[in-house]
């Protein structure tokens, strides 16, 4: 008997093969099904809210379930502010750490640090939240926030009373949470940079930093961008830790010392006890917006990452 690759699938006349293959097909395609189902289910359940408020849903500032006013702007504002700020802090830290692991230290120390970073990525969100609300927020309230308010209180970003639970707390906890994700993916991307690129720079008389700037970073740029975008997706969708430290106040404020609210947080807090069908649908619509945002972000990030790591034979 000559072996033919399975997809030629010459008739072996065995029902076992047919049944088995059918099962794997079904299971594999269920991934597509789940993705589709999620989108459709979220859309259908937000229909009452979509029909009632239309586009004004995302521009209205008033959120009052009792009166039946549903405007999502405070949550969108809070989500964007917290995730973009945390991303701005996390990006340089993560890239620098990944560079330290792959380009600066020796292999042993590097893999040790990488393992610690992976450990950080494995801690559940609720534990970050626990630490955030019981340790970090009180510390912020006692020391950091009064300091910021005393010295930079004239800036709109640091005005107001120190509550501890605040936008600042959310930004910091998000930063701590997304740094390991961006770092470990960036590390994979940097490892996929061929040594010939590093040698080219070194042979031109570059210092180590110049080598990084000239050869390593440009080569990995789209992959690093993918890692950063993936981190953004994680920050926007992060629920528990943020809910626990942000203060959950639907007010649009630019001060980091004020409490805020995010899209996942309002869902987490109100969905199980939605006061009316419209309230539930409005929360579903927030979920739908969140889903669409994260889908777009993830598709972008994966396309960027795949373009780098697949050709280089790595994985992300």
């Amino acid at each position: 008997m000559i072996f033919l690759p399975p997809r030629w699938n010459i008739k072996r006349g065995l029902n076992g093969d047919f049944v088995f293959k059918g099962m794997t097909v079904l299971f594999a395609f269920s991934i597509l099904g789940i993705l589709l189902l999620m989108t459709v289910a979220m859309y259908r359940q937000s229909l009452p809210s979509l029909a009632k408020t239309g586009w004004s849903f995302i521009t209205a500032k008033e959120w009052d379930p009792v009166e039946g006013n549903f405007g999502a702007l405070p949550y969108i504002h809070g989500s964007l502010l917290s995730s973009l700020l945390s991303l701005a802090l996390a990006t340089p830290l993560s890239i620098a750490t990944a560079l330290f692991i792959t380009e600066v230290t020796n292999r042993r120390l590097g893999s040790m640090i990488a393992a610690l970073v992976e450990l950080l990525a494995a801690i559940p969100s609720v534990i970050y939240g626990l630490w955030g609300i019981l340790v970090m927020a009180p510390w912020l309230q006692r020391t950091v926030e009064p300091f910021l308010n005393d010295h930079f209180g004239s800036l709109p970003f640091f005005s107001g009373a120190p509550y501890g639970v605040s936008m600042l707390a959310a930004v910091l906890i998000l930063m701590i949470m997304i740094v390991p994700i961006i770092t470990s993916i960036t590390k994979e991307v940097l490892l996929a940079v061929p040594d010939s690129q590093r040698e080219a720079a070194i042979a031109l008389g570059a210092t180590r930093w110049e080598m990084i700037r000239m050869a390593v970073l440009p080569y990995g740029r789209s992959g690093i961008l993918g890692a950063v975008i993936l981190g953004l997706g994680r920050a926007i969708g992060e629920t528990m830790a943020v809910t626990m430290v942000i203060g959950n106040t639907p007010k649009i404020s630019w001060s980091l010392l004020d409490p805020g609210y995010t899209m996942p947080s309002v869902i987490a807090n109100e969905f199980a006890e939605a006061s009316s069908d419209l309230h539930a649908a409005a929360l579903m619509e927030i979920g739908l917006i969140l889903l669409v945002i994260t889908l777009v972000i993830n598709i972008m990030a994966r396309l960027l990452l795949w373009s780098v790591t697949r050709t280089a034979g790595g994985k992300a």
């Binding site: 690129q197 080219a200 042979a203 008389g205 050869a215 440009p218 080569y219």
Partner: peptide, 21 residues
């Protein structure tokens, strides 16, 4: 080594131009 390498250049087995430039 950095100053020295400016005096001693090197060409490699596989062409390795910087692809982003």
């Amino acid at each position: 080594p950095v100053t020295m390498r400016r005096r001693v250049g090197m060409v490699f087995q596989k062409p390795n131009p910087f692809p982003a430039m």
